[in-house]
Amino acid sequence: MVRLVGVDLPRNKKIAYALTYIHGIGLTSARKIIEVADIDSDTRVYDLTTEQGVALRQTLENTGLKFEGDLRRFNGLNIKRLNEINCYRGKRHRNSLPTRGQRTRTNARNRRGSKKTVTGKKK
Results as ranks from 00 to 15, higher is better:
Met1Ala: 14
Arg3Val: 11
Arg3Phe: 01
Leu4Ala: 05
Leu4Trp: 04
Val5Phe: 06
Gly6Trp: 04
Val7Ala: 02
Asp8Ile: 04
Leu9Thr: 04
Leu9Cys: 10
Pro10Asp: 03
Pro10Val: 03
Asn12Gly: 14
Asn12Met: 09
Ile15Met: 03
Ala16Ile: 12
Ala16Trp: 00
Ala16Arg: 06
Ala18Phe: 01
Leu19Gln: 08
Leu19Asp: 04
Thr20Ala: 05
Thr20Ser: 08
Thr20Ile: 04
Ile22Tyr: 06
Ile22Leu: 07
His23Asn: 01
Gly24Arg: 01
Gly24Lys: 00
Ile25Asp: 00
Leu27Pro: 05
Ser29Gly: 01
Ser29Ile: 02
Ala30Lys: 04
Arg31Pro: 00
Ile34Gly: 01
Ile34Tyr: 03
Val36Glu: 09
Ala37Trp: 03
Ala37Asn: 07
Ala37His: 03
Ile39Arg: 07
Ile39Asp: 07
Ile39Leu: 09
Ile39Thr: 08
Ile39Lys: 08
Asp40Trp: 02
Asp40Ser: 13
Asp40Met: 06
Ser41Asp: 06
Ser41Met: 10
Thr43Pro: 03
Arg44Lys: 14
Arg44Gln: 08
Leu48Glu: 01
Leu48Asn: 05
Leu48Ser: 09
Thr49Met: 05
Thr49Asn: 07
Thr49Tyr: 05
Thr50Val: 11
Thr50Glu: 14
Glu51Gln: 14
Gln52Phe: 04
Gln52Ser: 04
Gln52Glu: 15
Gln52Tyr: 00
Gln52Arg: 03
Gly53Val: 09
Val54Glu: 10
Val54Phe: 03
Val54Ile: 12
Ala55Glu: 06
Ala55Tyr: 01
Leu60Gly: 07
Leu60Met: 15
Leu60Tyr: 02
Glu61Leu: 10
Thr63Lys: 05
Thr63Ala: 01
Leu65Asn: 11
Lys66Cys: 01
Glu68Cys: 03
Gly69Lys: 04
Leu71Met: 08
Arg73Gln: 11
Arg73Asn: 02
Arg73Glu: 06
Phe74Ile: 00
Phe74Asp: 10
Asn75Cys: 01
Gly76Asp: 05
Gly76Phe: 07
Ile79Leu: 07
Ile79Glu: 08
Lys80Glu: 11
Lys80Pro: 00
Arg81Ala: 13
Arg81Met: 11
Arg81Asp: 10
Asn83Lys: 15
Asn83Glu: 15
Asn83Val: 14
Glu84Tyr: 09
Ile85Leu: 13
Cys87Asn: 15
Cys87Lys: 10
Cys87Arg: 09
Gly90Gln: 09
Gly90Asn: 06
Lys91Pro: 00
Lys91Thr: 11
Arg92Trp: 03
Arg92Leu: 11
His93Asn: 13
Arg94Leu: 14
Arg94Gly: 00
Asn95Asp: 15
Asn95Phe: 13
Asn95Glu: 15
Leu97Thr: 14
Leu97Gly: 01
Leu97Val: 11
Leu97Glu: 15
Pro98Met: 06
Arg100Tyr: 02
Gly101Lys: 11
Gly101Thr: 11
Gln102Phe: 08
Arg105Lys: 15
Thr106Ser: 13
Thr106Asn: 12
Thr106Arg: 12
Asn107Lys: 15
Asn107Thr: 14
Asn110Trp: 04
Arg112Asp: 00
Arg112Lys: 15
Arg112Gly: 07
Ser114Arg: 14
Ser114Tyr: 10
Lys115Asn: 12
Lys116Ser: 05
Lys116Asn: 03
Thr117Ser: 14
Thr117Trp: 15
Val118Ser: 09
Val118Lys: 15
Val118Met: 12
Thr119Glu: 11
Gly120Asn: 06
Gly120Lys: 14
Lys121Phe: 11
Lys121Ala: 13
Lys121Gln: 12
Lys122Trp: 07
Lys122Cys: 02
Lys122Asp: 06
